[in-house]
């Protein structure tokens, strides 16, 4: 089923490329806007399935995109938003996740080139899931001083990172070439070691992990 996408990007080159990519993949681009204000208006008007938002927007080209995304989520809780940026900051990830609920993605723009993965992430977020850039996760995993994360085995850390990106157990199993059962076991161990209540899967556990990491 095609996803109705709103593109919020001021760089014409990128906006066009993105629209081309999404149309080629069979999705519907319902509009392209280039300011935070127009973004708010367009969401009010069209209620897109997902908005793909650049972090830097006019007039100050700093973090308007993040602030606008937070505002949109305040007005329309659960509105799926995929934030794209040329660099990622854990601070922004934390702000985007702070409102709770799923339907949030935060990816490096570079990832767009891997079309199938990008479209996957887009669908996941549009469906209320989560997509966090591995770069964000590795930033979140960098800890100073002793931390329960240190007690995880290397394999468990890999699983934790993939889980935090918003991937399903099946997906994780494929990527690590292990069985889904062993992934399930790792997840259980991770939750135990970090002292998190066991969670069934889906975006709730992702949020639990992310909010734990971004504390």
């Amino acid at each position: 089923m095609p996803v109705r996408v709103l593109i919020v990007e001021d760089n014409v080159l990128l906006a066009e490329g993105l629209a081309l990519l999404l149309r080629t993949e069979g999705h519907e681009v319902i509009g392209t806007v280039d300011t935070a204000e127009a973004f708010l208006g367009a969401v009010d008007e069209h209620r897109p399935d997902i908005a793909v938002v650049d972090v830097r927007l006019p007039p100050t080209f700093s973090d308007e995109g993040v602030r606008a995304a937070v505002e949109v989520r305040r007005r329309h809780p659960g509105q799926p938003i995929l934030v794209l940026s040329q660099y990622v900051e854990r601070t922004y990830a934390t702000e985007l996740l702070a409102g709770g609920g799923g339907g949030i993605g935060y990816l490096l723009k570079d990832r767009v080139g891997r079309v199938s993965e990008f479209v996957d992430a887009l669908r996941r977020v549009a469906g209320g899931g989560t997509a966090m850039d591995p770069e964000v996760i590795s930033q979140l995993l960098v800890r100073h001083g002793r931390h329960p994360v240190d007690s995880l085995s290397p394999r468990e850390r890999e699983v934790l990172a993939l889980m935090a990106e918003g991937r399903s157990n099946g997906d994780i199993a494929t990527r690590l070439t292990v069985t889904e059962r062993s992934v399930h076991k790792h997840v259980g161990n991770i939750f135990l070691k970090l002292g998190l209540p066991p969670s069934d899967g889906g975006h709730r556990r992702v949020l639990a992990v992310l909010s734990y990491l971004s504390q």
Binding site: L13, L14, G17, L21, Q86, V112, G113, F118
Partner: peptide, 9 residues
């Protein structure tokens, strides 16, 4: 980024 996108498509 736009090059990566075009190559991806």
């Amino acid at each position: 980024v736009s090059i990566a996108m075009r190559l991806g498509i």
